[in-house]
Write a protein that binds this DNA or RNA. Structure first.
Lengths: 336, 336
DNA sequence: GAGCGCAACGCAACCGGTTGCACGCCTCGA
DNA sequence: TCGAGGCGTGCAACCGGTTGCGTTGCGCTC
């Protein structure tokens, strides 16, 4: 092996008989370098398995090529809130890698106010990605007032003023409700996640649209909100059942809530889907294995992750980000 | 605000009327600096919300204070394999933060052979953490031959030669089996994850020990292996039922497999737990909401994550790592 | 009072890249 | 034949920290 201490571009320069600037430019594919020289240098680097010191590069360039995924510091909460977080993360990672960026996972506690500076000004990261389920308005406003580059999955704080990627919540809500109506359900309820999320509002809008398309009126007492947790799902369906004993269908904003709701429905002596049809949201891994298997709305989470990455990279490079929504589709199983 | 371009320690030095070396040492709490000078410098830095440039620091120090979490590039697979990956990650992140390290998420494809060099020699990370569910022997051997610092969750490739953190699989297997036996089950089967994993072998050892403690013989035909996926769980129970129609209890190596197995049991016209009791493993979020709620083995995943972090940091600092197992306990619900 | 040790701090080199600018060489047109 | 203009490359400064070593000033001993 010829890997005898070939650690810096100076070493490569020596071997190639050129200066380190030439090596630097060659490795960066600069047009300033003659093609045969460039090829020779790159060949030498390849043969010696040279890896350019990224830290030095970052210092020179003044950027880290790293973005941070912001999470809470409370483990269980995170798991509860986003069963698809891993898949999303995988998509983000893939998208970032394709653009030469790495993904850092950080945790910030709610009371921490200068995490942005700590990560941004120290040069550890260039930007942030947040998940609406795991971030507070506090986070968003902190980011905005320091005008840090960031992007969110979901729309946690109003539709404007920052870049986001989200599922097509309107269509998702509409598809779910239409399916319920189409299968003959007469009184269809809505169990939302946190009412503050624009995503939830959009799902509600889809629910309303489907109802109206079918010539039905929206019954406010059939609309209840939880917080995406199983417990809140059980509580919500309980409330619905007490208000409307003849409820025969419900669109639930998350699979986790839906599963708990199904339990609760059975606890009330009703059956799913015979008495009450249930449609969930997210299509988590276990959704196919609940009893009965859950009919739900599937989002292209991996695609969303990739879009998040691309979008953030574009924001970092050009200063302008975009808002994108990825498609949602109905997955029919047994619960509705 | 006095945040007018206070970006470098030179700026602080100017404000404090000292040299940049003094500032550097003061911020690093060096004993070479007088306490009043040190305090003055730190106060100034604090007042100006100064954040030291971490990239430059890393270049000088020759270390990145970042470790990489190695994942596959196939999203769905990852989600399937490790429903608790997020929780683990959260624990790791917390543990690393406490020690001044950050967590980077990287994806390496199976055919990629020089990812270690790419990340290590470029100075982007100081070490790696792998999860046995998401890594191949290939990964491990690549790491070992480049003697890169790394640690694993689970024991993917033999008990020796590297550092790992894992659940107490022996006890977990024993507890599960004992519970089954204790509730009067006569023929208790074992559905394992990948037989190659030491973790799975340990769970099997616990299963065997419980059987023997009860004075029973191990029936090889009641032992079947899958790969942790729901599908493999369904297939495994099918196999078991055809071999042993009088099976009345089964210890399944993952909740995902267990849930699928329960479906399959019902599909065969049997009921859980009346005909066949089922104990899972992992205690994932949905385990409490399956039908029936799943009795399972719970591991302190967050603790494990912290241990992973601490252990790896120690390995990086001192060159010696440890092997640690975190406790497992039985969570009794309705399925057994 | 000279010599000494020590505490406190500054100087400047160094980490390993990037890049503005200068320079040498060659080609081409006048 | 000479100058202008390109092309390809090298020089050296720079990014913002860290640190070995030298320097200063002080109190102390003999």
């Amino acid at each position: 092996m010829t890997d005898t201490q070939i650690k810096t571009i100076d070493d490569i320069a020596r071997l190639a008989g050129v200066s380190k600037s030439t090596v630097s430019r060659a490795l960066n594919d600069s047009p300033l370098i003659g093609s045969e020289t460039k090829e020779r240098i790159r060949r030498i680097a390849r043969e010696h398995r040279f890896e350019r010191n990224d830290t030095a590069r970052r210092l020179s360039l003044g950027q880290s090529n790293v973005v941070a995924l912001v999470t809470y510091d409370y483990s269980a909460k995170l798991v509860q809130a986003s069963p698809f977080a891993l898949e999303l993360m995988s998509g983000i990672t893939a998208g970032l890698h394709a653009n030469g960026y790495d993904l850092l996972v950080i945790q910030v506690s709610p009371k921490d106010t200068d995490w942005v500076a700590r990560y941004l000004e120290s040069g550890r990261v260039d930007g942030f990605v947040l998940m609406s389920g795991n971030c507070s308005l506090q986070h968003i406003s902190t980011l905005m007032e320091r005008n840090a580059p960031f992007i969110t999955f979901g729309i946690p704080a109003g539709r404007r003023g920052y870049s986001w990627v989200t599922g097509d919540n309107y269509t998702g809500g509409k598809l779910a409700t239409e399916h319920l109506i189409g299968s003959g359900r007469k009184r269809v309820g809505f169990i939302g996640g946190s009412a503050k999320l624009v995503d939830v509002q959009d799902r509600y809008a889809g629910y309303v649209a489907a109802l109206e398309d079918a010539g039905r009126a929206v019954e406010p007492e059939l609309v209840v909100y939880g917080d995406f947790s199983p417990e809140s799902g059980a509580a919500a369906i309980g409330m619905l059942l007490s208000v409307a004993p003849d409820l025969d269908g419900v669109f639930v904003n998350s699979d986790l809530m839906a599963v708990a709701a199904m339990d609760e429905i059975r606890a009330h002596g009703r059956s799913v889907p015979d008495d009450i049809a249930v449609v969930g949201y997210d299509d988590v891994a276990l959704a196919a294995h609940t009893d009965p298997p859950l009919t739900t709305i599937s989002q292209s989470v991996t695609v969303a992750g990739r879009m998040l990455a691309e979008n953030l990279v574009q924001l970092l490079r050009t200063g302008v980000g975009a808002n994108v929504t990825v498609p949602a589709e109905l997955v029919v199983r047994k619960s509705a």
